[in-house]
């Protein structure tokens, strides 16, 4: 799933990887792949994550991981960082999700009464990156679908999600709702349908397996 999602990153892109699963995507790209990673706390050109004994105390990403720079990195303040986000300089962001709707609405920041740490930069990334893709498990821990007709949790942004990567499938959000793009090896169509909480369009053409 993460390896498949890494193929979403094209040469030359400016990309923001959300906290959690998305940050692992970069491990699947060649070290010399031409891409610029952005983090909200003021860095373009993120280099590899460092262990504590090699870390710079002043150099973290927005998730608090100790990262490094690459030749050509730049630092800037928080207003500049989000000027980049809001003005459409991010070609792609990869985010986690609690729920996605079949219209591409995203809920990923709050579960009332259980989880309310604040939204951080999530709204701006979801609303303003040129392309928003979601990396998530297909269902929650209780087995309930995360891909639904409508989100029930507080929204991060409406109509923002283009594509969803899960351990079972790659699914696009289209004007007609969810459409299967690829299916994971060893997973049946029936299993994907069962785990998806809204109608799923199956293309007539051969479905690639990842």
């Amino acid at each position: 799933m993460i390896a498949r999602a890494s193929r979403e990153i094209a040469s030359g892109m400016v990309v923001n990887l959300g906290i959690g699963l998305p940050t692992k995507v970069i491990d699947h790209l060649p070290a010399d792949f031409p891409v610029c990673l952005h983090t909200e706390n003021g860095l373009t050109g993120i280099g590899p994550t460092l262990p504590p004994d090699q870390a710079d105390r002043n150099l973290i990403d927005a998730g608090g991981a100790y990262v490094s720079t690459v030749p050509g990195s730049a630092f800037f303040d928080s207003a500049t960082s989000f000027a980049m986000v809001r003005s459409g300089r991010l070609d792609l962001t990869m985010l986690g999700a609690f729920e996605v709707s079949s219209q591409g609405d995203l809920a990923n920041w709050k579960i009332p009464g259980k989880f309310s740490p604040g939204v951080g930069g999530g709204i701006e990334l979801a609303q303003k990156a040129r392309r928003v893709v979601v990396l998530t498990t297909h269902t929650d821990r209780a087995g309930n679908p995360k891909l639904k007709d409508e989100c029930t949790l507080p929204l991060t942004a409406r109509g923002c999600v283009s594509r969803i990567f899960t351990e079972m499938a790659v699914i696009d959000v289209t004007p007609k709702g969810y459409a299967l793009v690829e299916i994971a090896e060893g997973i049946s169509l029936a299993e994907v349908r069962e785990a998806t909480g809204a109608p799923l369009t199956i293309p007539d053409t051969t479905r690639p397996v990842f």
């Binding site: 909200e40 303040d77 928080s78 207003a79 960082s81 989000f82 000027a83 986000v85 809001r86 939204v119 951080g120 930069g121 999530g122 709204i123 701006e124 609303q127 303003k128 507080p154 929204l155 991060t156 942004a157 409406r158």
Partner: peptide, 29 residues
């Protein structure tokens, strides 16, 4: 929203009364 906190502070420091943005429309923020 993180960038809006930054921008509200930037406005305060720049002698501006408010900024206009579409960030968060349709959400509880």
């Amino acid at each position: 929203a993180q960038g809006m906190l930054a921008e509200r502070i930037r406005a305060g420091g720049a002698g501006i009364g408010a900024v206009l943005s579409d960030i968060g429309i349709g959400t509880e923020l």
